[in-house]
Design a protein around this nucleic acid. Sequence first.
DNA 1: GGTCATAAATGACCACAGTCATATTTAAGT
DNA 2: ACTTAAATATGACTGTGGTCATTTATGACC
Lengths: 203, 203
Amino acid sequence: MSLREQKKKETRCRIFEISSRMFREKGFENTTVDEITKEAGIAKGTFFNYFPTKESLLYYFREQKEEFIRTIMNDQISLGISSRQKIENFLVQVAEHYEKERELLRLLFFEQKKLLLTTGHEKSCHSDKRKKHEFFINMLADFVREGMHKGEIRSDADSKVVAEILYAVYFHSLMIWLHSEKDYSFSKDMSAKIAIIFEGIGV
Amino acid sequence: MSLREQKKKETRCRIFEISSRMFREKGFENTTVDEITKEAGIAKGTFFNYFPTKESLLYYFREQKEEFIRTIMNDQISLGISSRQKIENFLVQVAEHYEKERELLRLLFFEQKKLLLTTGHEKSCHSDKRKKHEFFINMLADFVREGMHKGEIRSDADSKVVAEILYAVYFHSLMIWLHSEKDYSFSKDMSAKIAIIFEGIGV
DNA sequence: GGTCATAAATGACCACAGTCATATTTAAGT
DNA sequence: ACTTAAATATGACTGTGGTCATTTATGACC
């Protein structure tokens, strides 16, 4: 790696580290780009060479989270357990992971405008990006389809629709949990709701 | 009503009308407070006497929507139909109402930061406000409880949790629909998902 | 080691949301 | 009609996110 690339990487990293520390310490709105650049020892304009907006720092963070989620998913794929177990494990493990950094997630979800809306249905120019945003629902849909084939999930519904329901409940529960002052277990809440979704609310 | 109150009401109304027209025409970000006040024939500072922030215009809009939803809810209460029917009617009618103003809703949901997160679990100083934000889930919870009493909904789950699931799916489906370019029927999608939730996804 | 094209850094500058001290309008009391 | 206090309007001003023409650093090539 050339000196140039090396330096770029370092600067990008330094900006990111400093920002996330400052965001945690003083909040997103109360941290200015000026402060960040001053602390990072660069000019203001340089910041925008690395991140197009202040908000995009949060996007970057989110991407890292997605990477992690993907690994949790992959861990489940080849296990010899029921699809319901796989789905539950997947969602509960994500929840457990999130429980470790509630404050950070609050930052991510409550300070962002557009990103909040990653419903998994973003229109985007790049088919690449598209996949990236839909990835969570698609992952779930894979599990659901598998369950349908194995006869563990009713197959008279569209797998995508079922995955959407699961994701909707996951996402909303996450929001509720992040908003809440109480520190109940998000993962247990998830677990209970999955049970209800599988068994139905009707008598 | 005194001259003063009259004028205030008129000004507030004018600001709101002009803003919503401009937002629709050119988008939220592309409309400046300067433009709004110029068109309304008031000074910039006056705007902030009526609305604390530019964003709060969208809040105001949302409140009006909530008012409408409340009436839909009340229409259902005393009908002699099953709780499932009531829930379905309620959500589907809200969906049908929204279908008439997709663009406006996109504005509301995609331009707002904090408001997006009205998960129904906002902490707030005023118990008044609290109720206001939770109102959607509480409405659903009322229906659910009724259904449990009448033996139409399984009563081994917490009514609030069930209401959260319903709301989660409603909210997420709304987001997907608003994001989508295609113009499929949101109300039909809602209807299908409610069926799945009632019957469960397990075999 | 010198030259040059290109990548990267810089900070003066701009646009716009939001503030606040001051000016103006209203309406009640006399 | 006059006085006065409170409500309301005003626009110059501020803080901050983001831009861009200019300057500086880098490394390929001779």
